[in-house]
């Protein structure tokens, strides 16, 4: 079984249904990209996987290494190796990055009562900061407070490097970054992926294909209106780059109408729709 298996996931916020039956499987070692236009449910998927209490799951399940992920609290998920790099990480006044990171790393590494020894943590932190070319001054600042867009994204990647996840979800980590920064961030992810030698799976959620030039996903999924409507290899991202979401939309709308009528499983071109 895949390390992360999402089956028929339905999610809503208050009365609004956002995810309408997501199916996806991802294992360590793999890199998947989920691409979709604004409002398609990409960020919802990422947040639900991490356990954001803002969303209600109405149907479906998610197995993580064979266990019921949805029954776990966010911290339990994190300690078991799930990670999300947030699109909009919140800033927390008064809490220094140093103290936050040390507590987080200690939690991930199974320290129960005490924290990881300072010296050991500092050595680890220095290593990771050098590898990712993160300004060491960041650790004395409050969590994300006053960070530029790029600094926030890099801080997320730094956390990922420190926590050494088994499955990492990158929620629009490329958005708001210039191309040089996208490359630095993507290089960092690839480096971690290599270093993990098959121990880390990555789910990249993105609107644009440019980060995928650096990340080279094995699988690409297109999410549209709360469903994954197309899955394929890396060539799918290329195709999307050329034709845009408009091409997908047209195919999608044709099938949507047919499915509405007959309730069957349909496939037209690269778009398919499974009703449940």
């Amino acid at each position: 079984m895949a390390d992360l298996a999402i089956r028929d996931l339905h999610v809503q916020v208050e009365e609004k249904v956002i995810l309408k039956g997501i199916n996806l499987e991802l294992s360590r070692g793999e890199i998947h990209a989920v691409m979709g236009p604004n409002g398609s449910g990409k960020s919802t998927l990422a947040n639900v996987l991490m356990g954001n209490p803002f969303y209600q799951i109405t149907r479906g399940d998610v197995l993580y290494k064979g266990e019921d992920l949805l029954a776990m609290s966010p911290d339990e998920r994190a300690r078991k190796g799930l990670f999300i790099a947030f699109q909009y990480p919140v800033s927390i006044p008064g809490v220094t990055m140093a103290s936050f990171l040390r507590t987080a790393v200690s939690a991930r590494r199974g320290y129960e009562q005490e924290l990881m020894p300072v010296a050991e943590f500092q050595k680890l932190l220095r290593e990771k900061m050098e590898a990712l070319r993160v300004d060491p001054a960041i650790v004395g600042r409050y969590v994300n407070e006053g960070f530029s867009g790029g600094e926030k994204k890099r801080a997320e990647i730094l956390q990922m490097a420190l926590l050494e996840p088994e499955i990492a979800i990158m929620d629009e980590t490329d958005s708001g970054l210039d191309i040089d920064s996208v490359k630095i961030v993507a290089d960092g992810i690839m480096q971690m992926h290599r270093n993990a030698s098959g121990g880390m799976g990555v789910l990249v959620i993105t609107h644009y294909s440019r980060i995928l030039q650096f990340l080279r996903p094995h699988h690409v999924h297109i999410i549209y209106d709360g469903r994954i409507v197309v899955s394929g290899g890396p060539e799918l991202a290329q195709e999307l780059e050329e034709r845009g979401y408009e091409g997908i939309r047209q195919q999608f709308e044709v099938i949507a109408a047919e499915v509405q009528e007959s309730g069957a499983i349909r496939r037209a071109g690269k778009v398919f729709w499974v009703t449940h």
């Binding site: 356990g51 609290s73 994190a78 999300i84 006044p93 008064g94 809490v95 103290s99 936050f100 926590l163």
Partner: peptide, 25 residues
């Protein structure tokens, strides 16, 4: 804020404590 900290492995109690400590910083 709580969710963000918990998503990094902090328990709810640890997260709350960190926020309170930050509040008084």
């Amino acid at each position: 804020h709580i969710f963000y900290l918990m998503s990094r492995g902090l328990t709810r109690r640890q997260a709350t404590f960190m926020i309170v400590e930050g509040f008084f910083a």
